Simulated assay, not measured.
Amino acid sequence: MARLILYRLLISVALVFAISLATFLLQAAAPGDIARTILGDHFSPEAYQRLHHELGLDDPILLQYWHWLTQAIQGDLGTSPISGLPVAGEIANRLPVTASLVICATIATAVGGVALGVLSAVRGGRVGRAVDVLSLIGYALPSFWLALTMVTLFSVTVELLPATGYVPLATSPAGWARSLVLPVTTLALPGIALFAKQTRDAMLEALSRDFVTALRANGIPERSIVFRHALRNASIPVVTLVGLTLVSLLSGTVFVEAVFAMPGLGGLAVQATSQHDIRMIQGVVVVFTLVVVTVNLVVDLAYGWLNPKVRAR
């Protein structure tokens, strides 16, 4: 197990470098210029050349990346030429918003999907078909339509939940929870259907195995068989799906943060891209990459806990 973790960490370090370099090169090749963005529509060639030189844009692309990398390794992500604020500080201010969305949506997706999947596998019949239909409806609904419909229903018509904005947890836990209900629901509903189907298939396979028959023959309660034995055996593919869902929700937050006017990393990345703020983009990409690396490592550790064969390798 230790060898597997070390191997994953080495790959993760290389992955961070590769993605940061690819992002830097792609952003440098994109149309536009941060110097022009700063100066606006009316500027003299002399002013443009002076600012272009001050920003280090005269240097070769790989040299610019090297300057950024040497600072990033020391924990300094630089300063945004647009806002004049430290990149790390801007990311730290917006990270709780995106983290709240992603973590809460992942938990809601996993809990709701697993519950529906187990219910569908155990009950079967009409209950199973009803769960399947409801899950597929949730998966088929377009996210933009779902978001706008919920805003219209729960914010405009009923006036029960806020339509936009974010309340920090430290300011008001109740306000924080209310501000997350609609965006988290928008993110979670499509994934619940996928979780329900995956859990149902894995549970049906686990319940059909010989050890389940032996447990029933020995008089073990059905609830214990389902939740203690079958669900644990069916949980490995579900754990994989949890990791994939959390990673995919990082991109989903861009849309949700825009619709619900939430100041998260998704909106920061879009704004930085439109302004050609490569230092801010690099900082956001590095944070997202570190999140993906951490999630993959946690999934590997969960494999080891659920499957003793992985620990023996």
Rank of each mutant, 00 (worst) to 15 (best):
L160E: 06
P31Q: 06
L301E: 00
P190R: 06
V102Q: 05
V270G: 00
D76F: 05
V133R: 05
D76Y: 07
D277F: 00
L241H: 10
T109C: 08
D58A: 07
I19K: 03
V87H: 08
L39P: 13
I225T: 02
R209W: 05
Y303Q: 15
W66F: 12
M203W: 05
T171V: 13
V284F: 03
S120R: 05
A108M: 11
R36I: 00
A312R: 14
N296Y: 13
V292K: 02
V295I: 15
G165E: 13
V286Q: 12
E222H: 03
K197I: 07
V97L: 12
S83K: 07
S224Q: 07
L246W: 13
F288A: 13
A202N: 10
M262K: 11
L69N: 05
T171L: 12
I11D: 09
R216W: 00
L249F: 12
G138R: 14
L244F: 07
L194E: 05
I220Q: 01
H229G: 06
L160H: 05
R223H: 03
H276T: 02
A177P: 03
T289N: 03
L10S: 14
V156F: 10
A105T: 11
T157H: 09
F43E: 09
S208Y: 07
D300R: 15
A29P: 02
G84F: 10
V238Q: 13
V238I: 14
G266T: 08
V131S: 12
N93D: 11
Q198A: 14
A234Y: 14
W66V: 12
P190L: 09
R3K: 10
V13G: 09
V127S: 02
A193T: 07
T213F: 08
L250A: 02
I192Q: 09
R232Y: 04
V122C: 01
L290H: 00
T294L: 12
V295G: 06
A108V: 14
Y7P: 00
M280G: 00
I38N: 02
A174D: 04
V238M: 13
R3I: 07
D41R: 15
L25V: 07
V256A: 11
L231R: 10
A206Q: 14
T157V: 05
L63G: 04
S120G: 07
V291D: 01
G84T: 14
T79V: 15
A193H: 05
F43K: 09
S235G: 13
A28P: 03
I236Q: 02
Q271V: 01
Y139S: 15
V298F: 09
T23P: 01
L297H: 03
S100Y: 14
I192N: 07
A47L: 12
R50A: 03
A35P: 04
S20C: 13
E54S: 08
I34L: 00
V291S: 01
V256K: 08
P45G: 04
I38F: 01
V226T: 11
S224D: 08
T185N: 04
I278Y: 03
A196K: 07
P60N: 10
M203I: 11
Q71D: 11
L21T: 09
N296M: 14
V118L: 01
A121P: 03
S248R: 14
L21K: 13
R223Y: 02
F144S: 06
G267I: 04
W145P: 01
V270P: 00
